[in-house]
Nucleic acid binder design. Structure first.
Length: 551
RNA sequence: GGGCCGCUAGCUCAGCUGGUAGAGCAACGCCCUUUUAAGGCGUGGGUCAAUGGUUCGAAUCCAUUGCGGCUCACCA
């Protein structure tokens, strides 16, 4: 399934890839240039790696990691290269603290220092805490067109698949210590061992490795339960490498050619830096091509991706407001090493408009110069979830869609039915966009933006009442005049209706400005609203007339 | 202290395979007797942080400086 989609995708790309200066293509070129010469009889595909620890809810910042890799993977495949795209769950990580957003925190406390695969799922659905966090993300990734091969490190460690890697680290521990010490404030002590152990009795990592027989056997003791024993690396499930050694060991193990990392890793003395040296000097593997990606911020809903108050912004939250291809668009259209904000405020409208413009450029209906067109087309291609569309979307500006939805009280099918020229194929995407727009109005739109047709009479507050500073008789008279026009709505265009409204105001010696305030108050209980004539046309006689006729 | 990133219009930023600067918002103006902009059209506005270098040509490449920000030096 996944592979079929990818091949379709490859066949239809429009951009001249050779002339693309999109960052994903540039990185793909670099990978080919530096890595292809390392292929041998056992290897004919590039290995692109991504990975994080599921020690809490996977947030949208973590998503930048995987989508960055996925975009480069696509770029490589578009150039006709074979790629193995792996996503490595570091689920043999230690459970260090209970995140603020978790349920059943007291129970979770009991499992601190356990491997996260042995902590129970607080929602009680999955086999473990780690699995619950993994499953949540894995269930969402297909929606944004991301299909990696998942690697579960806990399973690999516990099957001793990395035993040789651990042994190598032990054999070269002095060399490793020297590399790590170069950037430490205080050096590792002389008894330090490049292995950590989860106690076989109590499952905690509160252990100390005390001996190694220079072969496969290590001994440890646990300060929590007092257990002390000797284990064979080829059989035990309890040993793992510390992060800074684990990472390069896996590069070697999976023969990784490309892996980006966050800016926290990409600093001199940071973990990528030491991993590069350990990869080369200890594991004899040329470190992968990489780049650094910057952090994301959140706008329009709290300040942080993962706040101490417990709120975590995840891919699921972003998909509530953004269509999947627009989620991809935000990442594909931004260079990885620049910081940007995922917005939930009014910027949402602009992002949608930008995407629509990008799509119009792709379909050649928006005039731009060639250079810009090439760039935008490539971004559009990379933004698509699976195969490239052969027809432009039914483009409704997000803002207008919000108005239509509110007129129809959120009835998406009614909105779609009101669009005369939409094709069957276009409807599905518009449904998704409508859902996002409705979610946005409900959860994030500013008050100015929201309205509700006063269909049930003066229910909500004083909505529907004639404002007190208006003369009642002339108000009723002018509303009746407008109602008369609405009664004959089919003979009007937006322009003629607007004219008729002005005429009505003139006839009753009312300032147009006041008339608008009156009508908006009556219709939606607010002093302002969407441009009136168009608004009435869109809402239709059936909705507007009963309201006006009450006066 | 080391490393990385940024400094472009009033604001937010794009442009960075070198070819003489651009978008949104804001401002200003115009538009249908005519909107309130949550319309349409248009206008103005920049020594591209500074200095030096490479080049026929630099916002773009290199070097130095200044100012901001992030990050590492615990753990992952």
């Amino acid at each position: 399934m996944n592979k079929e989609i990818i091949s379709l995708y490859t066949r239809f790309i429009m951009t001249n890839i050779k002339n693309s200066f999109h960052w994903a293509d540039i990185n793909a070129d670099k990978i080919i240039r530096e890595r292809k010469k390392m292929f041998d009889s056992g290897k004919d595909a590039f290995v692109c790696a991504s990975g994080i620890t599921p020690s809490g809810t996977v947030h949208i910042g973590n998503f930048r990691e995987i989508i960055s890799v996925e975009l480069v993977v696509r770029a490589l495949r578009d150039k006709g290269e074979k790629v193995r795209f792996i996503y490595s769950w570091d689920d043999y990580d230690v459970f260090r603290k209970v995140p603020a957003n978790m349920p059943d925190r007291e129970n979770l406390e009991k499992f601190l220092r356990f491997p996260i695969t042995m902590v129970p799922d607080p929602w009680g659905k999955e086999e473990s805490y780690a699995r619950a966090n993994e499953a949540e993300l894995e269930s969402l990734l297909p929606a944004v067109g991301v299909f990696p091969d998942y690697i579960y490190q806990a399973a690999k460690y516990r099957k001793s698949e990395y035993a040789q890697g651990i042994k190598t680290a032990l054999e070269k521990k002095d060399q490793i210590k020297k590399i790590l010490d170069e950037h430490r404030t205080s050096p590792l002590d002389n008894e330090w061992m490049p292995v950590s152990v989860f106690c076989n009795k109590c499952s905690r990592d509160t252990t100390r490795v005390e001996g190694w027989d220079r072969e496969w056997s290590i001994s440890y003791s646990c300060s929590s339960c007092g257990n002390s024993e000797k284990v064979d690396l080829r059989e035990t499930a309890c040993a793992k490498l510390p992060w800074r050694i684990d990472w390069p060991m896996r590069w070697k193990h999976e023969r990784v050619d490309f892996e980006p990392a966050g800016k926290d890793h990409h600093s001199e003395g940071g973990s990528f830096d030491t991993a590069e040296r350990i990869s080369k000097d200890i594991f004899d593997h040329e470190p992968p091509v990489t780049f650094q990606y910057d952090f994301l911020s959140i706008k329009g809903r709290g300040g942080k991706i993962s706040s101490s108050s417990g709120e975590v912004i995840s891919l699921r939250d972003v998909l509530e407001v953004y269509q999947p291809e627009i989620v991809r668009y935000m990442f594909a259209g931004t260079r990885p090493n620049t910081e940007f904000a995922i917005s939930f405020d009014l910027d949402v409208i602009k992002i949608y408009e930008d995407y629509d413009k990008c799509e119009r450029i792709y379909f050649g209906v928006e005039p731009v110069n060639e250079k810009k067109a090439d760039k935008e087309k490539r971004i559009f291609e990379l933004s698509q979830v699976n195969e490239l569309p052969d027809e432009i979307s039914y483009q409704i500006p997000f803002r207008h869609l919000c108005n239509l939805l509110q007129i129809q009280s959120g009835d998406i099918e009614a909105v779609i039915a009101s669009l005369p020229d939409i094709s069957e194929k276009q409807k599905e995407k518009l449904r998704v966009r409508s859902k996002c727009a409705w979610n946005w109005i409900r959860d994030f739109a500013p008050e100015d933006f929201r309205f509700e047709l006063n269909t049930h009479g003066g229910t909500a507050g004083h909505a529907g009442d004639i404002p007190e500073d208006f003369d009642r008789d002339s108000s009723v008279r002018v509303l009746n005049l407008v109602a008369e026009e609405v009664r004959q709505l089919e003979k009007h265009t937006e322009t003629t209706l607007a004219e008729a409204i002005y005429a009505a105001a003139g006839e009753c010696s009312m300032e147009p400005k006041d008339l608008f305030r009156l009508i908006y108050t009556v219709l939606i209980g607010k002093e302002k609203g969407p441009r009136l004539a168009g608004f009435i046309m869109a809402a239709g006689k059936e909705k507007i007339l009963p309201i006006l006729e009450k006066y």
